[in-house]
Amino acid sequence: MQTFDLALIWAVIIGFGIIMYVLMDGFDLGLGILFPFAPDEEARDVMMNSVAPVWDGNETWLVLGGAGLLAAFPLVYSIFLPALYIGVFLLLAGLIFRGVAFEFRFKANTSRYLWNWAFAGGSMIASFAQGAVVGAYIQGFNTEGLVYVGGAFDWLTPFTVLTGFGLMAGYALLGSTWLILKSEGYIQDWAYKIAMPLLFVVLVVFAVVSFWTPFVDDLVRDRWFSTIQVIWILPALAMFCAYRIYRSLKMRREGMPFVATMGLFIFSYLGLIVSRWPYVVPPNFTLWDAASAPESQLFLLLGLLFVIPIILVYTAWTYWVFRGKVRADAGYH
């Protein structure tokens, strides 16, 4: 009867949604992280203007991911969220603050510095929390039956703190290379200057996580060191992207640093997936264990196949309309 593996289709959709979110919200969160260090207020205007038309579209992927997980993989939803309770609160609080700061900073004069801090603080907290989620996923969850039974701070370990700061650095790198693409003059110079050390930090964290992950459990170790050798292409490609970032920064190329940083993210993400595949709630549950009933997955899939293309086209159109360099004086009179 069942000709399609619906759970697999959904895994691809959710997986696609997550990387879309990471890449797209990543660079605007990254600009938030860099915000306090910007050379001056004019640079901050440019940074914000460069993401203003797109940032809320970027976050739609997160909300869609939340609802989609509940519908397609309820077990992921009902174990991750309780396990990361405090982290989820911080993530949402951070996102709310920066979202509102985004809107009001444009309309504020004297209170502008307050919104600057809200934007930067919210972005940092949200990024750290997301990085910690990645670390917690690699660590695995303490479950009994279909229920999380660990404590409130099980997720907070030296490893997840490292992944938290690692993702902050990664987002900041995405943000700085985005800024290289979208700015010019002294602001672009500043972005070039900070991108290189950020790349260095990202690579250090990347190295530690890469050495750590295979020793989390036997399955991951076997995956990398015995069975399928072809997956080594993923870290190799990630390293190649890192090299491309380094070279293109040296040569002061404008587009390549951002593209190569996205590549670095994508190949690291795929590497993470093959490490744990097909476990979505490690160490006990695969994506098939976590799936909702097939009729429920199918019911939602029909609507999603209709709406996702529209969202993608709309997103692409928005980026196209606002392509090119951003200037601080755009719109000032």
């Binding site: 609802a67 509940l70 309820p74 077990l75 609160f89 709310i96 229920v147 909702s292 939602l300």
Partner: peptide, 30 residues
Amino acid sequence: IVMSFQFGTNWSNFAQASANFLGPMLSYEV
């Protein structure tokens, strides 16, 4: 934004049990 995560953080058993129906409903809303 907060609403779509509340069911999981505070009502995980309910979310797990009712996801087959409520998941698609909430997703269609989004």
